[in-house]
């Protein structure tokens, strides 16, 4: 870990300005991912700007029935929030399935969105990794691939985004509010993370110095049920092999509306829009669910070490939709 300076920001504009002045500075939230990476040498900023005391730790109802989640709200507080538990069970479930109680007490909303891949080569500075060192290649293409992407990957990077929370937020059509030197902008969560292309070093569309101030969750229409299912090798305290966040409304046996996001399959939370199109207006049956899953997975390009994810996504997605449709039918 290289030496670094530390400043505590007192207000949002001050925090943004400190980063603007220093291209090697980074925001420090809960630290659960940043300190991890500092210690491994994955990243080496020379200034940390602590943004945990900017008053961004509130969860507020919005006039339209939605909820605004502050950028430094702790994962545990978000999962425990009454509004979130009642209105967005998919989000509470996703948060609770991530990391551990201790880590959720430190980790922030903004930090969770910005957490970096768990690819073992990204974390091991003695191995080539184009995400860590642009242009150095991708060790995973010939290496350990169990946690890697089957959708939207490139020859430069097959890493996945590790967040559970972000997958649920993708299914909820959340909007990320960002403050930079030029003011505030709102980015739909589904556009917030990038696919790797030939710039795998860029995880998101954020520019240096932009701070996540909040995530807005739009209201879910009446009758919509939501659920998060995470599949992993061990029962807890593990990253997803794959996960499914789904929101479903079934009326008279027909899918009235549906939103699906997949985790563990791509460089970003993967909004399964092909499956959604297939499902809208279709009968809520196992057959439709299977067809929709297959339609989404038609674009899958697994590598040898993660080919199992194709049937795994299919099985998991069908199960989640089946369970949700049984729930809505009640």
């Amino acid at each position: 870990m290289r030496p670094f300076d530390y400043r505590r920001a007192d207000d949002i504009d001050g925090a943004v300005a400190m980063l603007a002045l220093n291209p090697s500075a980074a925001f420090l939230g809960g630290g659960t991912n940043l300190v991890d990476h500092l210690r491994l040498g994955v990243t080496a900023p020379d200034l940390l700007v602590d943004v945990t005391r900017l008053g961004l730790d509130r969860i507020e109802p919005l006039a339209d029935g939605g909820v605004r989640v502050g950028g430094t709200v702790r994962n545990s507080d978000l999962a425990a929030d009454r509004l979130v538990r009642e209105r967005y069970p998919v989000l509470a479930q996703a948060l609770l399935s991530g990391a551990s109680g201790q880590l959720r007490n430190l980790a922030t909303t903004g930090g969770n969105l910005l957490q970096r891949t768990r690819c073992v080569y990204f974390q091991d500075v003695t191995t080539p990794c184009g995400k860590r060192e642009p242009g150095s290649g991708c060790s995973a293409l010939r290496g350990y691939q169990r946690y890697h992407a089957i959708l939207g990957a490139s020859s430069a990077c097959i890493a996945t985004h590790p967040s559970d929370m972000a997958v649920a937020m993708a299914a909820l059509d959340a909007v990320v509010r960002v403050r930079g030197r030029d003011g505030e902008r709102a980015v739909p969560l589904t556009d917030f993370h990038r696919l790797p292309g030939d710039e795998p070093q860029r995880d998101t569309v954020l520019q240096h110095g932009e701070l996540i101030t909040a995530v807005d969750l739009p209201p879910l229409p009446e009758g919509m049920r939501s659920r998060y299912r995470k599949v992993r090798d061990r029962a807890s305290y593990a990253f997803a092999l794959v996960s499914v966040a789904a929101v479903l409304d079934v009326r008279d046996g027909t899918v009235a509306d549906v939103r699906i996001a997949l985790g563990g399959v791509a460089h970003k939370p993967w909004r399964a829009s092909v499956a959604e199109r297939e499902l809208r207006g279709a009968p809520a049956t196992a057959d439709s669910f299977r067809r929709a899953a297959d339609a989404e997975l038609a674009a899958a390009e697994p590598v040898e070490g993660n080919a199992f994810k194709v049937p795994l996504v299919r099985g998991t997605l069908v199960a989640v939709l089946r369970e949700l449709s049984e729930e809505t039918a009640r």
């Binding site: 630290g31 991890d36 210690r39 201790q102 430190l106």
Partner: peptide, 23 residues
């Protein structure tokens, strides 16, 4: 030393956290 085992758990302002990942 990376928040992957929990042996360092302490109560920080009353909440359990991994003290290895807290600067």
């Amino acid at each position: 030393d990376h928040g992957q085992c929990g042996a360092c758990t302490i109560l920080l302002d009353g909440r359990r956290v991994n003290s290895c990942l807290a600067l």
